[in-house]
Amino acid sequence: MVVILGTPNADSSEIYAVTCSSGDPTWAGPLAGVALGLPVYHILESEVKQQIDPVLYEQQIGLSEMALDAASIIGAMLRARATPPAAK
């Protein structure tokens, strides 16, 4: 099982990623303190992109890829995945 996000910015990407892996970091929702341990990726990450038919990807994601701040979103995803569960 893997979670793929389409969140529009770094903050939301990080919150969603951490929520799905080690529990809601804002302690606002039902997943506060619940570690689902799911791997989480963003649709803009190259690891995901390279597995998708390029024509379809361009059609479905192309505009978002250009408009959204992909670098900061990817940075947030890397941070979320790198943080050890105990510290999250």
Partner: peptide, 23 residues
Amino acid sequence: TEPSGSGNVPKTNYRMIAAMAAI
């Protein structure tokens, strides 16, 4: 919206329109 992680919604939308102009 930004303090709760929801970002700058108008900015995202304007960049979408701009990206369309670029395409």
